[in-house]
Every structure is written in structure tokens, then in C-alpha cells.
Simulated assay, not measured.
Amino acid sequence: MVRLETLRGYLLEEVLAWLLRSSGYRLLAEKDDPARPPWKVLEKRKHGLVVRGRGAWHQADTLGEFQYVPPFSLPIRLFAEAKFTRIKVGLPTVRNGHGVVHDLNENVVTTLSNGSGPHRPRVRYHYSYAIFSTSGFTQDAQEFALAHQISLIDLSLPDFLPLRNLVRASAKSVYDAMKLMQPSLRSTVYEIRNYLRRHLLDLWDGPAADAPSVTDPLDVLAAGLRRRSSLGLVLAFPAAPFVLGLVSDDLNAFVRYALDQPTHDVRVYRNHRSAGHPVWQIEPRVGPAYRLSFSLPEQVEAWILDQEEGTRSRTRWMTRNLLSAITLYWVDESRTYTFQLQYSSEEFREVSGRPISDFGEATDLF
């Protein structure tokens, strides 16, 4: 029987797949690869989807593809791995993610042929890896991820507490229900995930859990997500070797503002907490219409803020080059919108020492 901690992680991955859909990613299944063996790169096996690399096939529980291809680039696919644990995610998890994407991106077969007909180009992809953790990351995991461009997204922010509690309660209910069942009647993790995907993503890909004692808590999870549709995660893309996971207690307010002004100026500042590392805040330069929050792993933040006396300020370089704009994509039914948040060093200086009643003292980022 699956461990409770493992089940929480699997349910969190399904929740993230649902939330990330609003950031322009769609969950992939075997049917999304029309090629025939031996050229297929997606295949469904006993425990779910696997994807072919240069040296091995890799489990892909949550694999999304960005709906649009960036200019002069390959289609982008994203592995999303979620860890719902009491301890920080360590180096082995991050190292495994790097090994997976390195093997996939090295799969360089560029043509297909049936042996008798002409060769034809084979579509290639650029794979990325993002790890979401409810308890943060160890220092060596952060350093390795930063060096190899594995994105680490911290879900320990207070804004994520309702979401964490919802997943935790649902996993506990499913786990308790299965403990009372005969082993032969227990749903597999694959069937539990398929049930959620049918209700959240309208994907029908294999057998799904059907015991009411198991499916009822999953229905509560799906309904809770829909009720909290204003609380969600959206991925943001700076010109940096990481992505940002932005969250708000009223994401709809941000969407309304951004639909009216797809490109607008913002302020960014760090908010020092009494416990834990700082939270960063983004809000529009004109009007307090919304507030987005994110938290960076400590080593990533230290890399950004690091300054050495007598050398060029890395923070100024970050301001001008990596953090001059943040791009977000928002999917609403069949339409995809592109938003860009722009800021400059002048805007940082203006909010230096600014008091914020709800969050305590805020200081400028740079």
C-alpha cells in the first residue's frame, strides 16, 4: 500500500497539473505522440506515461507541453515533480531531475524512416524540470539546481496554506479508506490519479478508482480547487536560469488588471518575515490593484543579492539584464494571453523602507 507521504505528493502533482494549465501548459498522454515504434517518444506502461531519452525511458507522471513554440527554439516540455514532506528536498531529488532532462535532451535522432521510404524530420523537444516542495530545499540541492537550471519552487508560503491543507486532508481520507479495504480491492496510485484527471483536466486515459470511499475525498479535493479558483499558482519567466511560482489570494484581480494592461510597470520588494526567509512581493506601479507573492530558495536569493566590494554589483547586472521584465502566460478557455511585468532600478529605490500594514516592513530588492 502506498505511504501517506507519497500519496500526498502524487495528489499535489495532479493539483499542480490543473493549476499549471492556466500558465499555458497542457498535460501530455500517449495519444499526443502519433509516431509508431521504434520512433515513439511517449508510451503508456503499467504505472503511467514514460518518455524516451537517449539511454533510457523515464517515468513522467506530470509532463506538460507549452502551447506555443518560442521563436528560433524547440517546443518546450516541462516535468513537474511535487514533494509534500516534512523535511527539505535534498540533492538526490534534484540530481535525478537533472539526469532525466539531460538524457532526454541528448536524444538526438533527427529523422524517421520505415526502412524503405524516404527519411523525414522527427520533431524534437527541449525538456525542463521543475520541483515543487512544501518544505523548501537543502543548500546543496539549491546550489546544484542553480548550476544546472533546475527550477525549484517553494510552496511553503502562507498563501499556499489553504491549498496544502486541502491536499493533506484529501490524502489522509483516501489513505484511511484504503487501509480498511482488502488489498485486492485497493485502488492503485495510477487509478487514483486518473480519477482526478478526469474531473480536473477532462482526460480519460486508462482505468480510474471507483470505490466511493476513495473517490468521495477526491471529489472534495476537486470541488475545493474550483471554489478556490481565485487562489492559484501561475508560472512567471524572467530572463534567468529559474522560473518563478507566483501566488495571490486574489489571482482574478491580477488577471483583470493584466487583461486591461497586458504590459505594465511594477514594483518589486522584499518582505522580511519573523520566521523563514523573506517573501518577495510584486504589485503594479499604478494603483494597488493586485499583489503577487513568491519565495526563492535561499541560495538562489543569495546569488541574486550577492555583492563583493570592489567588483561590479551583481544586483545591478541582474536588474538591467535578467530582471528587466517578467513574462506570464494565462490560458482562459481556448485563448492564451501574454502579460509582461516591467520594472527598473528606479522603481526599486522608490519603495525602499516602505511600510506595509499587512506584511510588516518591506525593503527594496536592489
Rank of each mutant, 00 (worst) to 15 (best):
R8T: 08
W18H: 15
R26M: 07
P37L: 04
K40D: 13
V41T: 14
L42M: 08
K44Q: 12
K46E: 14
H47D: 14
H47N: 13
L49E: 09
L49S: 08
L49Y: 06
L63E: 05
F66A: 07
V69T: 15
I76S: 06
A80H: 11
I87H: 12
G90L: 02
P92D: 08
N96T: 04
V100E: 03
L104Y: 12
G117W: 01
S133L: 06
G136W: 10
G136M: 09
D154V: 10
L155Y: 09
P158C: 04
P158W: 12
P162Q: 05
R164Q: 10
V167D: 05
K172P: 00
K172W: 00
K172G: 00
S173H: 06
K179T: 02
K179R: 13
L180N: 03
E191S: 08
P207K: 13
D210R: 12
S230N: 12
S230Y: 14
A236P: 07
A240K: 04
P241D: 14
L251N: 09
N252M: 04
F254D: 01
A258D: 06
L259P: 00
L259H: 14
P262E: 08
V266K: 05
N271L: 15
P278T: 11
V279S: 06
V279P: 00
W280D: 04
I282T: 06
R291S: 13
L292H: 03
E298S: 14
T315R: 15
N321V: 10
L322E: 13
E333M: 06
S334V: 11
Y337K: 02
Y337V: 02
F339Q: 04
E347H: 13
F348I: 02
E350R: 15
E350F: 12
V351W: 04
I356E: 11
E361M: 14
